[in-house]
């Protein structure tokens, strides 16, 4: 899974039938060493109810269709977790409650 920050939402009223009702979020990939954005974006299907600003992880490829929300949908990237905290080399480099 890759780590990203939700930086926006996508609205696409004209889309394939079985994607209707799905929430599409704009994700910016994060450089975990600095927790800064890599200026590299993607659109992912939201399966966990993530909000803008939150750090999440997402799956790509066929695994993206293995959540209940995305089963049988033409998605190749699905958010599967909202990150609460990241510990790296014994240090807390990210905590959801207060942005470090």
């Amino acid at each position: 899974m890759l780590i990203a920050r939700v930086s926006g939402t996508i609205v696409a009223t004209q889309k394939t039938e079985n994607l209707s009702g799905m929430k599409l979020l704009l994700l910016e990939k994060l450089d975990v060493a600095t927790m800064k954005g890599k200026n590299d974006f993607l659109v992912a299907l939201d399966a966990v109810g993530a909000n803008v600003g939150e750090v999440v992880f997402y799956v790509t490829g066929s695994s993206a269709r293995l959540t209940d929300t995305s089963k049988g949908k033409p998605t190749d990237s699905t958010i599967t977790g909202i990150v609460d905290n990241i510990e790296k080399e014994g240090q807390l480099i990210y905590r959801k409650s207060e942005e470090i």
Binding site: T67, D68, T80, N85, I86, E87, I93
Partner: peptide, 22 residues
């Protein structure tokens, strides 16, 4: 293995899973 990632709100239906930062 560089650390650990904690996520309570998840959609992968895995319980008690340990996510490692690699």
């Amino acid at each position: 293995v560089a650390g650990t990632v904690i996520s309570r709100e998840k959609a992968d239906k895995l319980t008690g899973a340990r996510y490692r930062l690699i």
